[in-house]
Amino acid sequence: MTRGFFVIPDREVPIPGWLREALRYAPLAALVAVIVPEIAMSDGHLVGTWKDARLYAAAAGVLVFVTTRSLLGTILAGTAVLLALRLGLNW
């Protein structure tokens, strides 16, 4: 759908400037809104403990991304931390 959006109509479609500006933030907002509860909430509440492997996995992922800009590295590092904490410390 989105990929075809502007190739569907046969004629040119004008986009107002303010809408284009607002659209810049929509993907970011949608992603944040999806992942924040996945990382820091359980059963509809903010996690009450620091012993949650997901928090550290996410932190490791961000750290790797900031230093290497590698998506693959982010996934690998985060998963490694999650596995280590889950299996090693039972968090």
Binding site: E38, L71, I75, G78
Partner: peptide
Amino acid sequence: ERWGLGFAGTLALLGITASLL
């Protein structure tokens, strides 16, 4: 299930999010 590999998907989205900041 316990290995939490499903979380890799969230991590991937996290990386994309970071690239947008």
